[in-house]
Write a protein that binds this DNA or RNA. Sequence first.
RNA 1: GGCCACGUGGCGGAGUGGUUACGCAGCGGUCUGCAAAACCGUUUACCCCGGUUCAAUUCCGGGCGUGGCCUCCA
Length: 484
Amino acid sequence: MELKLYDTLTREKRPFKPLDPANVRMYVCGPTVYDFAHIGNARPVIVFDVLFRLLRHLYGADHVTYVRNITDVDDKINARAAQEYPAMPLNEAIRQVTEKTDKQFHDDVAALGCLPPSIEPRATEHIAEMRELIERLVASGNAYVAEDNVLFSVPSMPDYGQLSKRPLDEMIAGARVEVAAYKKDPRDFVLWKPSKPGEPAWPSPAEIKAPGRPGWHIECSAMSMAELLQPFGGGLVCDDPQKNVFDIHGGGVDLVFPHHENEIAQSCCAFGAPRMANVWMHNGFLQVEGEKMSKSEGNFVTIHELLKDSSWPGAILRFQMLKTHYRQPIDWTRKGTDSAAIELGVFDIFTEGVRSRQTRAGKVPEDVLSALADDLNVPLAISVLHKLAEECRKSDDPWSQAAHDLRASCDFLGLDLSEVSYRKLYERQHGRIDESRVSDLINERSQARANKNWKESDRIRDELAAMGVVLHDTKDGTTWEIAR
RNA sequence: GGCCACGUGGCGGAGUGGUUACGCAGCGGUCUGCAAAACCGUUUACCCCGGUUCAAUUCCGGGCGUGGCCUCCA
């Protein structure tokens, strides 16, 4: 099976050829840990988790390295720390904020069924590599010092702007931001900047006396080097440009410019590499109820709220996210969550037996895998799952091959069905169903029906319906389930 | 203002130069005391205007709409 991925750089879907099939390497930009992650942050985490699973399937679990960083040095973190812990020394407050947010993030994404990446480097653990990279860029003439800042010189890189397709000279025209006076060129960006007193600070590179801290973009160049190049023979000590490229770099489409463009500039110029990564993948943006998500609009939806306050099982949120192809925009709505719950509830019904007692090996159908291999066409893969569910419905055997395959497919997609049954959803909202009360009422109703007392029979059925219980009268008696 | 995406039936959402996506909902039927479930059948599509083509929802151009980005972070 051939994996094809859409590459933002070339704007086309291409067959994926790993540099080394024994060491497939992927880097995805992770969160800045200063606040609860919102549902938009969840998208790349879920999307690239599916890709991670697929790569592990295709190349072997031990042959894929997935790096997702944690950004724990950033102005927003500083601001949040000062606001939340005004009495505390800033660095201590920052540690409080980052540790707390970091934990929340991991709890949230675990609930969404995401595997932990192979490595989750933290920016503050890689300051040394950032400094080394900056020194290199200064030495090579790609960066310069100005007022204790180190800036990347965009004109020093003729290819700058390829990823976002922004022509160098036209880029300034529409800019509406004031340009710092010390910049040689308005497009130059910061690699290192001086820290204000009390802020996190490290010894500066390039013989700058004042302590400082890294710019935003350099951390990803440094961490991808440290985790995806150096361990595989590349990095600063290696002059072979081919050793200084990894396979896949991912993130949200909002990162294409400037973040990824600048990462490319830093990495390629530092290592003399023709490319930073062979494939650039970007997930589409997300709106909430038709509106841009923003705190001022009051429609800022965090993963935590959905899981804890609204009691949605993570699998349902994950499924809702995966119902849309990763490059399409999503309008995240409550109605969409309800639909996802109904669909997954069906998968739960048909796999309930095989989840408690697997009687044979389930197999992820080729149709599912080939859909995923076609640039992660998860919606198409899900349509195959519906077909399996259809087979299950037609089968008399609760342990049919289709049921095993459906289970295997859900497992493959990271969809944990253990909490998604209609009953569990109902009980999360309305409290436990009193089963003995239900069976008492059913017995009473059966009596009434035996006596052809349809009025009483229907009254009891209505009473049960009010409890969320729906009856099925069959030849063998009456069964019940929770309303969908 | 510049650059870049996206626009499919009631809703969600794939895909394609000519043939049923799929799911949910709706409608009709079988079944049922009546229902429910199940099964069978079935309605409503490709933003607008041009162009290319034997043929466009699918390619090209323009328009409209929505969204993203426009650098040291709002």
